[in-house]
Design a protein around this nucleic acid. Structure first.
Lengths: 235, 235
DNA sequence: GTCTATATACGGATAGAC
DNA sequence: GTCTATCCGTATATAGAC
């Protein structure tokens, strides 16, 4: 359902880079950049991007120090690439997936689950994006904030729509969206916790939807259930 | 209601340190350590602890490089001190505040608001604690996780209690506690967002309680409202 | 107790061979 | 395209004067 290929991502970066790229063959570029990204995300998510040295990255990616600098101009650019890539994919996927639906009740579910499954498929990216935003320059931080607000707005708009149609309660839509975001983010920020309890994405998703709908939906407006959104039982 | 003094915190550290402390007079120790903490939190929360150099800290705290090393043995110990201090205070405050109450409905509100107001009063500490946990050694990270689980357990126990008394719905208490934590944390992690919208702590608290109670409380069990927990209106 | 000056190492980045 | 060897700045930490 939500699938993103590492190769596709890197190919796109290759295409976008234009003339100032040092590696000629797309194939080697894609292969190595994917290794670099993997290694960088792994190390950064363990001890932080700032604490990751280029030597660490060289060792983990299997490329020499010198070679690394053929793929990015410096540590700053690497950070920028990682952030931009994560941002781009998220926004694209979210808007794509929620485009078709009309019923706000279903749309809300779809948006929540899309975000959730996407963050599951790309956990290292999402985690990195969240934790390393503050290490960026002013421009990068602003873009990160804008991305947060954009995904929040997707949720808020759905909620407003549902409210206007009389399906949802009349509550602060933006605040509701904000806390939904917080709950969605918790899934990829605290994987250690949920993994330790053997909670699956699906369980988490079902629980979230129950929780959200208890607040948003008017009592008599349970939506036509495509996923049979049953109650989440006691532990 | 929730008040924590910088001086008290530092005095306690002074008392705990025992013999291997280099500064003799409590007064200078407390005064300077408070300055160090302030500066360290400020810089770290802007660009990350790893990116903060001792020179940065020296400049911002007004103490020379050499003097700093009279207060901690190195950057690692400073990190450890900051984390431990934050942890200790949080757990103590939370258990203290929720101890008296009996009615689980009121207790839940109290726990949520206590956590929220505490995190407001000590925002830099909480933010730092969350964002810099992964820069610590194994032991430090384990303690951070334990602290997360401990505060979560406080919430979960209240919810279980309410369920057993027939006041709350029969839902997964631990999962509920987990998402409540996520929402509470959002307040101090994304202050920029809420500040930009002129949302006050009280508004956020009221909203959270409405949200949580919509899911947790059985329909006919609105609690005796001490704070008159009215609906949070539309934006 | 606090300062300045400095030892020492480590990190990012580049040069130039292959 | 990739490697090794190296430059050079900056970081942590300390020595020793005041």
């Amino acid at each position: 359902m939500v699938h993103v290929s590492k190769q596709d991502i890197c190919r796109e970066i290759y295409a976008r880079k234009g003339g100032d790229i040092k590696i000629k063959k797309e194939k080697t570029f894609v292969k190595n950049l994917a290794r670099i990204f993997d290694a960088a995300l792994k190390i950064s998510n363990e001890k932080g991007f700032a604490a990751m040295s280029m030597r660490d990255l060289s060792r983990a990616s299997g490329l020499s120090m010198g070679a690394l600098y053929a793929y990015f101009s410096g540590k700053d650019e690497l950070l920028e690439m990682l952030q931009r890539t994560g941002r781009t994919i998220t926004i694209r996927m979210l808007t794509e997936q929620t485009a078709g639906e009309i019923d706000p009740r279903v749309k809300l579910r779809t948006a929540v689950l899309t975000h959730l499954f996407l963050s599951e498929a790309m956990q290292p990216w999402f985690y990195f994006f969240y934790m390393e935003a503050k290490n960026m320059n002013e421009e990068g931080r602003e873009k990160a904030k804008a991305a947060e607000l954009a995904t929040e707005k997707v949720l808020a708009d759905i909620i407003r729509e549902g409210r206007d149609l009389g399906l949802f309660n009349d509550r602060n839509a933006l605040m509701t969206a904000a806390v939904i975001k917080a709950m969605l983010q918790d899934w990829y920020l605290k994987r250690w916790k949920y993994a330790g309890r053997n909670i699956t994405v699906d369980q988490y998703g079902r629980f979230l939807i129950d929780f959200i709908e208890a607040f948003c939906l008017r009592p008599d407006q349970k939506p036509p259930s495509p996923g049979e959104g049953g109650e989440s039982g006691p532990e």
